[in-house]
Design a protein around this nucleic acid. Structure first.
Lengths: 354, 354
DNA sequence: CTGAAAGCGCTTACAG
DNA sequence: CTGAAAGCGCTTACAG
């Protein structure tokens, strides 16, 4: 009778790769089998109109029997919707963004959407290119994970397609922003160190002009201020959100003979680098120097010693971003909020003894 | 004169999200401007036929002036090529696979291809679903990063679309495999520990039936054997390629009072977990226990102490996989080979003193 | 509630 | 070397 797909290996000499000879079921075949018009099948598929129960049942039976899967490419051309969402990340291999992507993927997967990830490589110019690429791919919307595009660029983009952006607070038509409270996180981390008796607290900065980084720095300064501690520019060193940046920062500090008893790194990766720098100089965490990170990566609880860090749930953030996008696409107004930051205290921070 | 795209913010009341009102340039407009037929523009775009220099110049001028970008969705429908490659990864947020994805992205980006990443979640069933999703998305080919699909399933899939698979050696039409020498890597790591005088060497396994893991185990056994050391099943403990697995493994070992002086973990993430387990029990790396990992993740040089590990360049592997796919799509036969493994000796392994 | 028809933006035999 | 025409597989006004 009916041949099964994969076992119907004909011995025809199809060497050509340009014409995939896979048995493909089209909507038209479904229509014919169900005895209705293609329009009706399409409407049932999209829930676009009320269809009589009899026809609906017939169509659904045909779909099941034929194993029909609508072709998203054709849907994209005809209907203008590709059921795909573009995601602009800074680097696909970053542990933090990797988790966010994972959260997005899971959320999108449930409703048959696909994600298109492109990496902005930490600079606005690349990010702008990403938008062009995604636009040309006709994605239905774009999720921008932080990044350094200007608010204006984002707003302009939102005029032509739905946007969800994380890492900043922005109001504009067609745009929903999801902001993690980086300021509060920075404040919490610093306050924790102050509470432990530290006075000379280093801040290792993130990528310059990256909103996340500057907000964390603001939090650091606010905590110092409210404790009546003077802000010392010598204690704030540049970083890059990567391990190497943390290592460099510590080397620099030690070279310049700056004294300090604690370090707050703007992310965990830099904290790891800083830890190595201290280790190389024979300084122990937390006995000689307390160390606090930001992000609370899954791996941070396996650091030696386990790292105290501001918890930020990247996969939850990603899921929320994806969910918000889906809501916008459904004509709803997203209302989701990012959970508040909290400090995960582990063993890398300790009361200052002198 | 000509208005610039982004500044032409008309004040029309376009609230509807279903009809993106972005000024879109079509091939037909290019054709009209250049005074040729759409067919000719298409041919120039695809290098599909020889076209007179004059027309070519005219078309190229029109493309530049209009800022035309071909619509991949339409190309996909009409030509059967979507200029996108599916990538099946185990988990998009895994550090190792993240690097591979990054390598793929960079390679594909250079030629205007996009990648569609889907996560197999470490099981064959999910991976099979991934193939379905990618097929329905009409990708031009699929890159399978390791995974647990059977050779047969892979070969069947290759009958309908080009496949590049890593993590195994397989020959079939339409399929190219890129295998990292996991056996040799496992052998190198174990031999290193043997050379340092270790006799009781633990092996922390990866995901069961995962080819990478079993090959590394084979290497471990081969090294023992060639050194005349007996294989002790007590020393081989299950793992999962994640930090938690390494931690569990060490806890288990210590609970069962198994004696050992060295650990070879089937990947770096498990080595981190193992390190924490040892730390919790007051055992020091490398003074009490030597530790060797596998993958040599970028972060491993920042572990405390920096981790000795078998170097495997995931981004290079990804780039190679993408390049091979592109070659297949161009009708060429890929010949790229994965670089041989080597051991990156750092500070977590040390001569056994007794 | 449902069809026939046009069209989305390209590519590709088919004819010159 | 180049055009006119058909078609890829859907969706969506437009008419009943």
């Amino acid at each position: 009778m009916a041949m099964k797909n994969s076992s119907s290996q004909s011995n025809s000499s199809n060497r050509s790769r340009s014409a995939p000879t896979h048995p493909v079921v089209t909507l038209e075949m479904v229509a014919r089998m169900a005895g209705v018009s293609p329009s009706t099948v399409s409407r049932i598929l999209n829930g676009t109109a009320v269809v009589s129960a009899i026809k609906k049942a017939a169509v659904e039976a045909a779909i099941a029997q034929l194993g029909f899967v609508p072709n998203p490419v054709a849907r994209g051309l005809a209907g203008g919707r590709t059921f795909s969402i573009g995601v602009i990340t800074q680097a696909i291999d970053s542990p933090f963004y990797g988790m966010a992507l994972s959260g997005i993927e899971h959320e999108l997967d449930r409703v048959g959407y696909s994600a298109l990830y492109v990496s902005g490589e930490w600079n606005a110019k690349e990010e702008a290119k990403c938008i062009d690429v995604l636009r040309s791919r006709r994605v239905d919307g774009i999720i921008v994970l932080t990044g350094r595009l200007t608010d204006k660029a984002l707003k302009d983009c939102a005029k032509t397609m739905p946007l969800v952006v994380t890492g900043r607070t922005l109001k504009a038509p067609g745009l929903y922003s999801l902001n993690f409270d980086n300021f509060e996180g920075g404040r919490l981390a610093t306050q924790h160190l102050i509470d432990l008796g530290h006075r000379r607290i280093v801040f290792i900065n993130g990528v310059v002009h990256h909103a996340d980084a500057s907000e964390r720095l603001r939090g650091y300064r606010a905590a110092l201020e409210s404790a009546g501690l003077a802000y010392d520019p010598d204690l704030v060193v540049p970083g890059d959100f990567r391990e190497a940046g943390g290592l460099n920062a510590v080397n620099q500090l030690l070279d310049r003979q700056i004294t300090f008893s604690a370090i707050f790194a703007a992310n965990d990766q830099m904290a790891f680098g800083a830890a190595l720098g201290l280790y190389r100089h024979g300084l122990r965490v937390p006995d000689d120097v307390s160390l606090v990170g930001f992000d609370d990566l899954p791996v941070s609880m396996y650091a030696l010693p386990p790292l105290t860090s501001v918890h930020e749930s990247a996969d939850e953030l990603g899921g929320l971003a994806a969910h918000s996008m889906l809501q916008i696409l459904d004509g709803e107004t997203p209302t989701g909020q990012v959970p508040a930051p909290f400090l995960m205290v582990r063993e890398s921070s300790k009361r200052l003894v002198r």
